[in-house]
Design a protein around this nucleic acid. Sequence first.
DNA 1: AATCGGCTCAACCGCCGGGCG
DNA 2: ACGCCCGGCGGTTGAGCCGAT
Length: 126
Amino acid sequence: MRAPSFSASTTCKTPCCSKVGIKRGPWTPEEDELLSNYVKKEGEGRWRTLPKRAGLQRCGKSCRLRWMNYLRPSVKRGHIAPDEEDLILRLHRLLGNRWSLIAGRIPGRTDNEIKNYWNTHLRPLF
DNA sequence: AATCGGCTCAACCGCCGGGCG
DNA sequence: ACGCCCGGCGGTTGAGCCGAT
């Protein structure tokens, strides 16, 4: 888990967290529920204004990331099977660090998950 | 039982390209 | 034709977990 090492107004320079009252860090089940329900009802997109509409104290990018990587029904989550690992290896040899391209060819896996898997399990082998 | 170090992985950041007014 | 804004991408971070000492 990550604590927002964040002092309200002075340090952060990025657009998405420069506003006070915008939450960062790990998502709670309540937030997941809010986001999940909203996107299922209204569809994906319009991320920047979504948090307000959904009643979330988050920036749009954070909502998008959370939905894309964890809440979307199509994401599989969990252990990478041997054939999936093999696919990742072959695709990476072919494409390099184009994680989203690789993810696009592995059903149910996200670019973030594949990138993590590569960095922690596979890259040390090279 | 307590501490230490390595690893995991959810979530962050900055940057960039494309679409749209 | 040309900025501006947004979403998408790749790289990076660090709290918490877990096994070793």
